[in-house]
Deep mutational scan, measured.
Amino acid sequence: MPVRRGHVAPQNTFLDTIIRKFEGQSRKFIIANARVENCAVIYCNDGFCELCGYSRAEVMQRPCTCDFLHGPRTQRRAAAQIAQALLGAEERKVEIAFYRKDGSCFLCLVDVVPVKNEDGAVIMFILNFEVVMEKDMVGSPAHDTNHRGPPTSWLAPGRAKTFRLKLPALLALTARESSVRSGGAGGAGAPGAVVVDVDLTPAAPSSESLALDEVTAMDNHVAGLGPAEERRALVGPGSPPRSAPGQLPSPRAHSLNPDASGSSCSLARTRSRESCASVRRASSADDIEAMRAGVLPPPPRHASTGAMHPLRSGLLNSTSDSDLVRYRTISKIPQITLNFVDLKGDPFLASPTSDREIIAPKIKERTHNVTEKVTQVLSLGADVLPEYKLQAPRIHRWTILHYSPFKAVWDWLILLLVIYTAVFTPYSAAFLLKETEEGPPATECGYACQPLAVVDLIVDIMFIVDILINFRTTYVNANEEVVSHPGRIAVHYFKGWFLIDMVAAIPFDLLI
């Protein structure tokens, strides 16, 4: 008679799926529990143990900040960024110097990925580790590398530091407007667009060049630039800015003055950032001319202004700041037409079709709590990747769950009947059967004279019903998954307890 339990259901295979997918890609990662103190490590794979030199037993239950890997060259700011990422709910990448158990130093890129439950609360953290440099290539500990984003994938490793954006290309926007319009339909740009040429040739750093990471940081200074100062900065030398009595002219307006920039070969870094931020506020060169004239017309309804409409929906549905990093990277690809469009465009503009998908598509409701890094690593669709929660398995109709209350009560009843059979069957065979043979035949009273025979008949009927119930009862397979398919249940029961239950259900007393 089957006594099969499996009270692990309803099970959740999400954690096993993450481990299996990460292991298949030869990654070095740990999984931490966000619900406990210090976000203790609950799993670390073999790749991480080989990377740091510690065994799994030495890593388990330690804080996922990996303070046991810190050393003299470990930056405090990087460690603080990892700790801050564990307090938030967004994906974050941090470069930090770690030390192995043998004392060797290596520069590592740590990717902190939160995993949320159905309520939107962070319950786990996945920390992925990628070695960037070994100890002989690690720089000085005073050099802070965590304020910069990861290198873009479309640049060669040897040319990542030679990417320079020439400031004269930004200063000569109005001069290039006529050349853009003359391109017409034969050019790649839309009317009114501004073409910015980027020099990728390796050259020595000069005062006129600005690194790509500095251009990325310009967006942080746009908020500090007032509207009046932006307007004066875009007017140009024809209309000098008016300053109040006793007030000095704005240095932001002076930063885009061609006369002032041409007199000296070098520009201050602050002026460069502010000038680029001011130019980015204009949607095209037409807006710059309109600002000089004193009238700013409404933005025209053409394809170039609607190019950012799908980007707005993608940004609203993005799951991490990696989408913004990807957008900034692609927006700086050289030799393309940049349409400086305000994100607050007309909502009635139709979304044009684009061959290049900048932001990841909208994630469906079932995966809105899973970050983009987890979705990318697992390579699963929205119909396959579940949320991290207890999910009731989908069972067929008329199927009994093996952990249901009805099955528990039924098993206790069958257990009592088995005990009765084990006690009274030998007793009936030894004593009652002998008395029946010696006594007179009682054929007239039937079952009324033999109450134990009636009980034995009921017990046999219950055993037959138990066999039928076992054909529709779920079970737990070797992978700790609840199986509810009727065919698989029948095959599993035939290979197991079916023969024993059938022999126990045969009414031998009635056959004798």
Rank of each mutant, 00 (worst) to 15 (best):
V194H: 05
V131C: 12
A190D: 15
D323W: 07
G186E: 12
H302Q: 07
K362G: 06
S255W: 04
R76K: 15
L15M: 08
V295S: 12
G192Y: 03
A9H: 15
E177K: 09
Q81V: 13
A188V: 07
A285F: 14
K101D: 01
P251F: 03
H7A: 08
I288L: 09
P245F: 04
A85G: 05
R164D: 13
P297N: 04
L171I: 05
Y54R: 01
P237K: 14
E365D: 13
S261H: 11
C64Q: 01
S351V: 05
R301N: 09
Y327K: 07
C265S: 14
S354C: 15
V196Y: 04
M308R: 07
A260V: 12
D323P: 09
P114W: 01
L324S: 12
P168S: 15
D342L: 01
I30R: 01
G158V: 15
Q61S: 12
S354P: 14
T270C: 12
G53R: 01
L155A: 10
V94A: 06
N12M: 13
A190N: 05
I31V: 10
K116I: 13
P227N: 11
L69S: 01
T174F: 13
G103K: 15
V132C: 15
R281P: 06
N33I: 05
A360H: 15
S261M: 10
V215N: 10
S264D: 04
R100M: 01
V132I: 14
T353H: 07
R181P: 13
S239K: 12
V215I: 13
G306R: 12
G120M: 15
P2F: 06
D219V: 06
S140W: 14
P151W: 13
P386Q: 01
M218G: 10
E95C: 07
S272M: 09
R273K: 13
C64H: 01
L87P: 01
N38G: 13
I333D: 15
L170H: 15
L210M: 15
V94W: 01
Q84H: 03
A268G: 11
K28C: 14
C105T: 15
L127S: 01
P10H: 10
S320T: 11
C52G: 01
T270M: 07
H7R: 07
A253G: 09
R292E: 14
P227S: 15
D144A: 12
H143I: 14
H143D: 08
D197L: 01
